[in-house]
Design a binder for these strands. Structure first.
Lengths: 189, 189
DNA sequence: CGTCAAATTGACAAGGCTCAAGTGCCGTGG
DNA sequence: CCACGGCACTTGAGCCTTGTCAATTTGACG
């Protein structure tokens, strides 16, 4: 309902890898709906207000209301699409592009959730968390953020992010929102 | 039904990132079941024999047979779990561990599909494809494979992979199969 | 004003990439 | 049966991006 969360896994040597971010309105645990055992965790990044539902009740609801089931399923598939994009992001893009891409996604999803536009997005993550999401160290995240600032692409101030030139930033990030599968509001499917 | 496939995305600069491998028996396109537009592609790595079903028929089947729907859903969730593990693999593990981990997963899934044991697994990928899966160059993949061979962990010969000491290799790879959610055969859920 | 976590910066090390050359294997054609 | 061509695999040298280590600075808050 409110606040920010992250989904993450731990590596054997204690490293944390964030595999997705979540904003108000997101379904947080659909990924485990039909799995017996959790393979990752979701944790709050800020104070969070949430609604908790027993899995069994959710499964029951889906059985009785297939249309709701389809919606949930679709939502889970979109999350999976985001995971795939993140594999690409972490595997193939250099540090600057990678961070820019992550920020683009976050801004777009924040907007979609009605949490402010690109000119003024709340960015509640520490640089270490951004590093955990991009497979970089916080030191290097800092360097790259500074570089993006110096290039006039973004502005940062106390937990806020401002994208100064969305088109240019989008190009730097090689960001294409198609993988988010945001549905055009006024088009029937 | 037969053969090997890979799921991949392209980056803006033409780089390929493989996001998962598939063996005989896998459902290949459940990831797009409720999405309007494909965000990635699946391609054959070897000659392949497959069964193609129209999405609409599949959706129809699910509507009429909810139990089958649940099975498909579960399968899609397991794929998503694999994507998450790959984000971790590519984001946080060094080259040697990363390749070893990928090989471990492949061996385990090959075994589960009844395609031979760890002592003799068909490995149909070129080193370049292994690089595309791990976010490395084929040159570096080659060096790491050589190192794993030199350490006596694996043996390679013309498309075959032999893990010499599974326990040791598993440790090197920091591999824990939990994320594959392979269900114990004889236990009711 | 003190405290503590986060952000910042610099110097240096290193893992992985690039470029380039060479080798081995296998299918094809003579 | 052998020669050839192509692709994957190997290997070496040097560079570059990112990591490591360590010291400061900044900012929020009590």
């Amino acid at each position: 309902m409110d606040g920010y969360a992250a989904r993450s896994k731990l590596s054997a040597d204690g490293g944390r890898q964030i595999v997705s971010f979540h904003v108000a309105g997101d379904m947080l645990d659909l990924q485990h709906l039909f799995l017996e055992r959790a393979d990752h965790s979701v944790h709050a990044v800020t104070d969070v207000e949430l609604v908790w539902m027993p899995m069994a009740a959710l499964r029951d609801l889906i059985a009785r209301q297939p249309a709701i089931g389809t919606a949930f399923w679709r939502d889970a598939l979109i999350d999976a699409s985001i995971f795939r994009e993140w594999v690409l992001n972490v595997g193939r893009r250099d540090a600057r592009t990678r961070i820019a891409h992550m920020l683009c996604e976050f801004v777009v999803r924040s907007e979609a959730a009605g949490l402010g536009a690109a000119e003024n997005t709340r960015l509640p993550f520490t640089q270490e968390q951004i590093g955990d999401a991009t497979g970089l160290t916080s030191v290097h995240v800092n360097r790259m953020l500074r570089q993006l600032s110096d290039e006039g692409l973004i502005e940062r101030s106390s937990g806020m992010l401002r994208v100064r030139d969305w088109d240019r930033f989008r190009k730097v990030a090689t960001f294409d929102a198609a993988y988010l599968h945001t549905q055009p509001r006024h088009v029937a499917t």
